[in-house]
Write a protein that binds this DNA or RNA. Sequence first.
DNA 1: CTGAAAGCGCTTACAG
DNA 2: CTGAAAGCGCTTACAG
Lengths: 362, 362
Amino acid sequence: MVLFPQNYKKGIEVSRDNAGVKPAKSGSRAKGRITLNDVAKTVGVSAITISRALNDPDKVKPVLRARIEKAVAELNYVPNRAARSLAAGSTQTLAVVIPTISNTVFSNVLKGIYDQTIEHNYEVLFANTYYSLQNEEKVISKLLAQYPDGIITTGLDMTERSKELLQAANIPLVQIMEVGAGEVLDMNVGFSHFDAGASMAEYLLAQGYRNIGFLGAQMDFRSQRRMQGFLSKLADANLETDKYLMTTTIPSSVKLGGHMIADLLSEHPQVDAVFCNNDDLAYGAIFECQRRKLRIPEQIAIAGFNDLDASASINPSLTTIRTPLYEIGNRATELLINTLKRRPNLSKTLDLGFELIARDSA
Amino acid sequence: MVLFPQNYKKGIEVSRDNAGVKPAKSGSRAKGRITLNDVAKTVGVSAITISRALNDPDKVKPVLRARIEKAVAELNYVPNRAARSLAAGSTQTLAVVIPTISNTVFSNVLKGIYDQTIEHNYEVLFANTYYSLQNEEKVISKLLAQYPDGIITTGLDMTERSKELLQAANIPLVQIMEVGAGEVLDMNVGFSHFDAGASMAEYLLAQGYRNIGFLGAQMDFRSQRRMQGFLSKLADANLETDKYLMTTTIPSSVKLGGHMIADLLSEHPQVDAVFCNNDDLAYGAIFECQRRKLRIPEQIAIAGFNDLDASASINPSLTTIRTPLYEIGNRATELLINTLKRRPNLSKTLDLGFELIARDSA
DNA sequence: CTGAAAGCGCTTACAG
DNA sequence: CTGAAAGCGCTTACAG
């Protein structure tokens, strides 16, 4: 690793020699930042008029408004949201609780959320649970301390304490990702993971596979339900459900997919199809099969879940289930914002479904 | 697409019939949330003592503290951060400006940031610029309105207005991703993209390739500098720099990589090596070459950038440059927090370097 | 169309 | 170890 810490000359000198250290105006908590009052003095009107010019421009005479806007720009005035929040009782902030940002699944969801918030002028505050309900409880509490106007959480499984906190907060809530598999506290957007798993089993059965395996990483609640749906159909067809099953709580990755299929095949070379509970696992499985010169899907079929970016391009292209990740984030946020703006929502639960994409790998 | 909006029965009934609509306590801005005063009354002490018990527990007698903690838990009291921020002049919030969360590169960086903030009890507020300096200016302004204690921005290229806003905010700032390629306003963590590009060129030259192409997506400032570094070495070796060059401002993706290499090869079948400016582009290039039955690296070598998850597993395994994405986020946040806690930083600029990973594809 | 008064829910010195 | 007073920077009715 090329590691050579070094100093670069600074292009410009910031107007403070101890950059980053706040000027602790002797005993005061002031930051030296421009306030509404500073703008008001500069323009020669009251603070309240400045506030109005900024928040409700139509109520201020155009000429005055122009002068105010000029002063705001010149002074680099940026309103203090904490003060605004406290006075107005609204933070224009939405809280988002997801398992982990480093899973593509959730960065897609988050993008859907983000695009909606930016359009409606909300900020987003997010936290990761790393798939732990205890962490979730902690971050929910921390997030609520910011008094978000609304909150999005992932999944239907929560501790009682989390539920209490959420209800005590008395703000609109959307539970995302999954639908129809548990207690909904307020609103709900997602799809049925059980049904998604079941539909993949039906597909593989219809293709004629009979020694069907399942590779599962992470094995969070939703993964479990996908597996249950999948196995239920195998059971209906009187096939093995436990024999070719391999799961781990290790997070999903391409590398892990390679290891898992290697293990599965060394124990059960007769497996003729494998459903991986995430596409990256499936990529790893495909790469490993290629190394073993196994022809896909003739000798072994591989299927994935989520239809990530590479799935259409990989060789062979991956049969998978497309999930409405961006849409889930986007629609959940829409529900929240509608509620906050007191616009009616058609439904408090949205099942956005999924789509099986049959390609070449299975 | 299976699309069937439907209502699920709610498991529990939330204690409000118009869920999500705040109880607008006639003419008041109150939210019906428990405040410090409510806790104080319940316990029978002053609000300030409650505040102390929460923020500086050692200063409150253990017995009293226990009673307070019990009341806090029973009432589901969550302190209002806006009020705290306003009074204390610190929001315990860090702002993060990145191009887009849906690029794995930045979700890795963001995770590095997040893990550091969670440890030190900061919140993170993020915004996407979608690679536009105009957007960046807007989101910086919006973010600053939240009065974050510190801010992280991406890259060294900003509008003058963005710089002014940042300096007027007078909070510690870390510009991330790139080092040594422009004006640093305060602190800086990253590596040299020019050098990274140059080192890949040197590697390919050393392997004996002479008809070397470059595939570039997005082509933001850092991509451009990687390309410049790369081409400078080709020029030094008296090789073609423009002929086998193909760039686009379309965001990087696996699919795009396939299209681009197809275009390049149809024009210049003599190309014997290609440097892709992101790994996903390289994956797409590899898949496309496989479809064309081109042997890698014998007939054509493919190299990537970033060393993403699949690069070690793909066939052939991908020669690429590993970039310290998580570390950049983590160390940048550390610098910020050190500054905020008035702990000295060894240096205001951290060059975290990069590593060329030679594998089978080139 | 503009302004004076009160208050949002905390924390910060300062007393005791 | 605990508390009374003042204030952080805004917005919300209410006047005029």
